[in-house]
């Protein structure tokens, strides 16, 4: 997705610069929602305000809505096809391996010290042991991160 953004918006149309795009990518990662959507909203908003933000977002999601709706309607018709069922059974095995590969990449980027490793283990423990909801995990980890930062600040203030 990023090379496409760069080609269309930086090189061809010059809506934004390379640096801005990199900034946007990192901001898109730390704001809720889909990164590509966040980036398009921001660019649209920057150029034409609220209307611009709404329309660039609409542009970003339209192909998905159209293509997936078409595929989903066909899928319903072919659900009983035996060959297709075998194909999908094979694909599901592959999806596990693909997702593990992505998890591995993210793990190396985000689990960098004792603290982050502990949070990772806690999240797994709560999920497997108690089946808590994903929202609970996100809120709890955000709270933990926020708290640990403030505790550090108070400690360093006291030391002074």
């Amino acid at each position: 997705m990023m090379p496409l953004f760069q080609n269309e918006l930086v090189k061809k149309r010059q809506y934004i610069t390379d640096e801005e795009l990199i900034d946007l990518y990192s901001i898109g990662q730390c704001t809720p929602g889909i990164i590509a959507v966040n980036i398009s909203t921001f660019i649209g908003y920057k150029m034409l305000g609220i209307i611009g933000g709404l329309f660039s977002t609409l542009g970003m999601i339209s192909p998905s809505i159209i293509i997936i709706s078409i595929i989903a309607s066909f899928m319903k018709a072919f659900m009983d096809n035996e060959i297709l069922n075998h194909a999908f059974a094979g694909i599901r095995v592959c999806v596990v391996a693909l997702m593990l590969n992505i998890v591995y990449g993210l793990f190396r980027k985000s689990v960098t010290n004792k603290f982050t490793f502990t949070v990772f283990l806690m999240s797994l423990f709560l999920l497997f042991q108690f089946g808590v909801s994903p929202i609970f995990i996100v809120l709890l980890s955000a709270f933990t991160g926020f708290l640990s930062e403030n505790v550090k600040k108070i400690r360093s203030n006291k030391a002074k």
């Binding site: 998890v103 985000s110 603290f115 990772f120 999240s123 996100v138 955000a142 991160g145 926020f146």
Partner: peptide, 13 residues
């Protein structure tokens, strides 16, 4: 810092 803590948790998810 908050996000640095959310990321590994989300990884667990």
């Amino acid at each position: 810092k908050t996000l640095a803590s959310v990321r590994p948790a989300v990884l667990g998810l």
